[in-house]
Amino acid sequence: MAVPLTRSTPLRTDARPAAGGWGFVKPSVIPGFGVTFGYALTYLSLIVLIPIAALFLKAASISPERLLEIATDERTLRALITSFGSSLLAALVNVVFGVIIAWVLVRYKFPGKRVLDAIVDLPFALPTAVAGIALSALYAPKGWIGSLFSPKGPLNLWIDAQLWLPEWIRAVEINFKIAYTPTGIVVALIFIGLPFVVRTVQPVLEEFEQELEEAAATLGANRWQTITRVILPRLTPAVLTGFALAFARAVGEYGSVIFIAGNIPYVSEIAPLLIIIRLEEFDQPAAATVAAIMLVIAFLMLLVINLIQAWSRRRFDDAV
């Protein structure tokens, strides 16, 4: 069985601390450190460090009172809550189904498995704008799925046809709107977060030693006990990492969400959109503040992910 090439988890380097008295870099026969490191650092400085510094500089140029004002402004808070709340929900859904999908892809054989395995990466490869308009069209009231729940849609028609149900039930009109509501946001975030969970859990399942399950069986555990006591605990670090990655990605997501969200301020407006709106209002300080908040949280998420990995390495003697 092929092992996936993608690493959806953060890079981990076995960086050993400076020992043995070498200075910045350990001497080596391999040439080219100066060139490559210098180039990489310059590149990173120009592309990453300086622009991000600009962000914090801008945020710092605002007076602390204004900063606080922007940060606690109702609309800002609402946008942040919408972004984080939807991301949390979507990541949770992805954990449940992502684990099931990873399990099924690793352990079972069925027709079309290879194709489905490849499709899991679709959200990675598909441009966010394309995903955005597709999802929006899909869940709009006239769309393939949105129409199922609309007043004249199949669901209502089917309920109306159930003559054995009391009249007052059949009279209720289901009008479950997905697009242009916060629900739509969650749906879009589920789409983009799914591969993170699946691709993080899959390698762990694939490497899982069959002997452990056999040992549990010889000791008398039935299948359910083996799964819950032996297999799932070993998956916990991978699941946590996948969750954190999906969550982090979802929080900052723009293109996939912007079409299906209602973008109604205070209701279904996501934080990235608020940043853009502030920019268009020429209120750069406000935009910078919201962005800085999101950046700080992004750093924290990265930190959390790295901590999980370190913990899992200590506990289980291997990384996720």
Binding site: P51, I52, A54, L55, K58, T128, A248, R249, V251, G252, E253, Y254, G255, A271, P272, L273, I275, I276, L279, Q284, A287, A288, A291, M294, L295, A298, F299, M301, L302
Partner: peptide, 13 residues
């Protein structure tokens, strides 16, 4: 880990 909007914003700033 960074939102694409933030990525663009830093260059505008």
């Amino acid at each position: 880990s960074v939102s694409p909007v933030v990525s663009g914003l830093v260059y505008v700033l």
